Amino acid sequence: MGSVPTICNAAVSSLTACCVVEEPINTLVKRFWELEELTASPVQCAEDVECDVFYRATTARDPTSGRYIVGLPFCEDVFSLGESYDIARKRFLCLERKLEALPNLRSAYDEVITEYIDKEYISPAPSDDSSKSLLPMYVIPHHGVVREDKASTRLRIVLDASSKTGSGRSLNDVLHSGPNLQGNLFEIILNFRIYPVALTADCRQQFLQIVMRDIDRRYQRILYRFNPQDPLVLYEFNRVCFGLKSSPYHALRTVQQLVSDDGSKYPRASEIASNALYMDDIAFSVMKAEDGVAASKELIDLFKTAQWVLVKWNSNSQTVLDSIPASHKLTKEVEFDKSMQHKILGLHWSTQSDYFYFQVAPREQD
């Protein structure tokens, strides 16, 4: 039997009393064996097995940067994709009219695209050579989502990879989603507050730090231009992008691969990354502030080997916060706000008072 961690006073105060009920000995013995019996691992479906086999066979790592290189896990023939350029062009022209009518949105959109170009997340699509000219391509319509609650970048460009082509099939239709590797949210939240010192962090641009192999970039193309008078430019994503059916799997599976490859050098961080990650959010707790200092440093170092940067660190321990580089912490406006409120995994967490709460918007009266 494993040891049970000490529960903090706040958690103890919420426990309710239970009465004792006597049960027949045969019922108790049966229950004992049911509890002690090892639970069999869930059986993966054939599609999930195929997807993971493909990942292991095609994933590589750049020896210089340490970045992982993956491929798109197709579940159907790519030739089932029909014409997509004209559809994406019509969608972009509609978006462009909106951008021209809203200068602030146009400026924000241009800024994101410029960042993508500067960081080589996207680049102009090459002219198809003879070896690739017979392969189909997929041009993805896109739009912007403005998040008023974001502390940093408020505009996120979302790719609509579910847009149907002329054949009635979309890119997402022909991709594996992969096995569900998402952690159990309820367990993560419980473990996040089981010890006195709590920490959270965010993996910056998690998808975009994973390289897409060259042959599959033709299925990640978008149209854009900075001025309506300029010709449309066809770009392609060089990285895993937001909006693809397979992208969440790529992100979480690659974290697993990182732990497998480099975890022995960072044992504390590896355990946390394996159990406390919910997509790009990490939430965990430790017994003492010194443990939090050591764990955060290990996590930053582990993720850095794959060119991932853990940012927006927050904690209910000032000792832990003082140990984290300023560039990796939440912005001062949020960190030093009087209420010290921070959103974690859909909940709001007040680091100063150390409690969870929900924000509810009053419903407007008709």
Score class of each variant (00 low, 15 high):
299 L>A: 07
326 A>M: 01
13 S>A: 15
186 F>H: 05
302 L>C: 09
153 T>I: 05
172 N>Y: 08
211 V>P: 00
76 E>V: 06
291 D>V: 14
157 I>V: 15
182 Q>K: 10
360 V>R: 08
1 M>D: 02
196 P>S: 14
304 K>W: 06
111 E>Q: 14
263 G>L: 12
338 K>W: 03
353 S>E: 07
234 L>R: 05
213 R>E: 12
97 R>Y: 10
151 A>H: 08
236 E>W: 15
165 T>P: 06
6 T>R: 15
147 R>K: 12
353 S>Y: 06
103 P>Y: 06
201 A>S: 15
92 F>H: 00
181 L>M: 03
284 F>S: 14
241 C>P: 00
323 S>V: 08
254 T>A: 06
71 G>K: 15
331 T>Q: 12
148 E>N: 11
314 N>L: 06
76 E>I: 06
264 S>Y: 12
247 S>N: 07
77 D>H: 06
222 I>C: 01
135 L>V: 10
196 P>F: 08
285 S>R: 05
2 G>C: 02
35 L>D: 01
193 R>N: 09
240 V>N: 03
309 V>H: 08
215 I>F: 07
145 V>W: 01
337 D>C: 04
193 R>T: 15
56 R>M: 07
233 V>M: 14
181 L>G: 02
350 S>N: 13
270 S>R: 12
123 S>K: 10
194 I>C: 04
186 F>Y: 04
293 V>H: 05
67 R>H: 02
198 A>V: 13
